[in-house]
């Protein structure tokens, strides 16, 4: 099986070692995306976020997405990590990354990892504003 996968759901995610983890003697390119908490949504100030997950299923879906990306772009390594619990502005909530021989593959794979995670992985984000809190995307 080509492609080493690291999938994790933690309270706090550390971004400092991600390039070392994705490093591989046959990888000339490593692309990593980090999603972080933004201060404003539609001009309204977000005080914090709260992430909840159905962990056993989320890990399985993340693993499926990693396998799809490895198959499609011939990746050497993949990392998918998501945080849960309360998160403040600027805190990282998701890290996805891919390493491959050339840069085109790792860029496309990295974009696929985050886009597909957002579509399929059972994780829910609640935005906490001053006077209300909202489960994101719940209603049309």
């Amino acid at each position: 099986m080509k492609g080493n996968i690291s999938i994790e759901i933690f309270d706090v995610i550390d971004t400092s070692a991600v390039f070392a983890e994705l490093s591989h003697p046959q990888s000339g390119g490593i692309c990593v995306f980090v999603g972080a908490v933004r201060e404003f949504t539609d001009n309204e100030e977000v005080l914090s976020l709260e992430f909840e997950t159905y962990k056993v299923m989320a890990l399985k879906e993340m693993n499926k997405i990693a396998l799809e990306a490895i198959e499609k772009w011939n990746l050497n390594k993949v990392v998918i990590r998501h945080a849960v619990g309360p998160k403040n502005v600027e805190e990282p909530v998701v890290v996805v990354g891919a390493s491959s021989a050339h840069r085109d593959a790792c860029f496309k794979a990295c974009r696929y990892l985050i886009d597909t995670l957002k579509e399929r992985v059972p994780i829910w984000k609640k935005e906490i504003f001053k006077n209300k809190s909202v489960w994101v995307s719940a209603h049309p």
Partner: peptide
Amino acid sequence: AVNSAYADDAVQLKEGDEIALIPPVSGG
């Protein structure tokens, strides 16, 4: 979700299955 995988409408449910409701996801 049935046994931690997405299940479409036709899937039969049986005792012992782990069933979960998945409202719109919003990770990332």
